[in-house]
Design a protein around this nucleic acid. Structure first.
Lengths: 223, 223
DNA sequence: ACCTGAACACCGTTCAAGT
DNA sequence: ACCTGAACACCGTTCAAGT
């Protein structure tokens, strides 16, 4: 009964670029970006790894595509509130950062991905609009947006390895110890600052960082 | 003639942690960090990969060790010039950035490496000293140093994939096109800023970024 | 204690051959 | 044009067995 089995088991949909990216996002969501490999994806799509190369140039491009797909989830609604532009900036950047914090290994790859997809452009456009609302000169706003996004991305990427073992805690403890042991002679400034270096909750530090960047962007004329 | 061959061909020195890191730096210098693998190192040291695990916990720890070794090369002499603290800050940060630019793949791994080696501590100590010379309150200086180093690291890491093919040029061209095509309706701010986004030489942008960060750090009180 | 062979469980990418 | 099997050239890490 070939007709029946053809209707009832369309198990293997045709390969498409979108289908591959869908599968990639699915695997990332469930197993992390480490598992988003050409071979694993091929297995997921019931084919061989070579077949994917018809639709995707290489694994770097695949990661970039996943990133743009995810960027669709950044909440840009706050960007309409030009009156409270500074707070809106915090909200948009916060939404972007939260997204990357949920997928630190993607953040890690985002550090060297130069995105150019529609969702990335929309994000940049929103940030530029908010800086314009704050009367920030266009030149410094343009360069500033780059730094705002870079900081958000790098901050999330820093935590890419934290999940493995007690990696995060161990690293924190080691640094803490190193700072404590810093002698007044060898590292006078480290010694003097002590706890300041490791103080604050992540969200306090994040908010301060964005504030600091906004202030810097406002205060610094382009060459 | 066993005695002779023992004296003349001490080909295989005993394995040590330092020896492994030496070999790692050598391989990185000649073939890039991609090639610094446990297996390649084992081959280099004329042994099997399993042997390395006596001295190194895993490949992440190995990368961290390479980074600290390299950090010894950061030029901190400018840090003594407290009078011209701002320029000294540029010089120390520039030296750090240059180092990472020479090894972008190491920069990439540095984004999620929490260093705690002596050379890293010396670098942080210098930066803290210069900010103190500039009368920056201790609390904001401590948080600020983190951001200064993060920006330098992330900037270098962005270029980690540029060497492959004409990756950098292609990415620049695509983004340029995307910005050009941004319609006034869909992306009004992108449309308005146009060239500003991609203007400036890398060193102009880098200097502006550090200036901007310093200004922001000075201007932003801790919570 | 230190070292190792061999194995386990994977990778990305290419290319000739098929449909 | 699209798809694939098979191969090439690699990975990190573990573990039982040796010295």
């Amino acid at each position: 009964m070939p007709a029946l089995s053809r209707r009832e088991r369309p198990a293997k949909p045709a390969l498409t670029r979108e289908g591959i990216i869908d599968a990639a996002v699915r695997v990332m969501e469930s197993d992390g970006l480490q598992r988003v490999t050409m071979r694993r994806l091929a297995q997921e799509l019931d084919t061989g790894p070579a077949s994917l190369y018809v639709y995707v140039a290489n694994s770097y491009e695949l990661h970039a595509a996943i990133l743009d797909r995810l960027l669709a989830q950044v909440d840009l609604t706050a960007a309409k509130d030009a009156a409270d532009w500074r707070e809106a900036l915090h909200e948009v950047l916060g939404s972007y950062t939260d997204l990357l914090f949920a997928h630190p290994s993607l953040a890690h790859s985002a550090v060297h991905t130069h995105p150019d997809g529609p969702h990335y452009l929309a994000l940049v456009d929103s940030l530029l609009g908010l800086l314009a609302a704050g009367q920030v000169p266009a030149g410094q706003a343009a360069w500033g947006v780059d730094l705002l996004l870079q900081t958000a991305t790098a901050t999330a990427a820093e935590h890419a390895n934290d999940s493995k073992d007690g990696n995060a805690e161990a690293a924190f403890r080691r640094l803490n110890e190193a700072v404590d042991n810093a002698s007044a002679q060898q590292f006078p400034n480290l010694h003097a600052h002590g706890v300041d270096l490791l103080s604050g909750t992540p969200s306090e530090r994040r908010r301060w960082a964005f504030d600091m960047l906004i202030n810097g962007i406002i205060a610094t004329a382009r060459p």
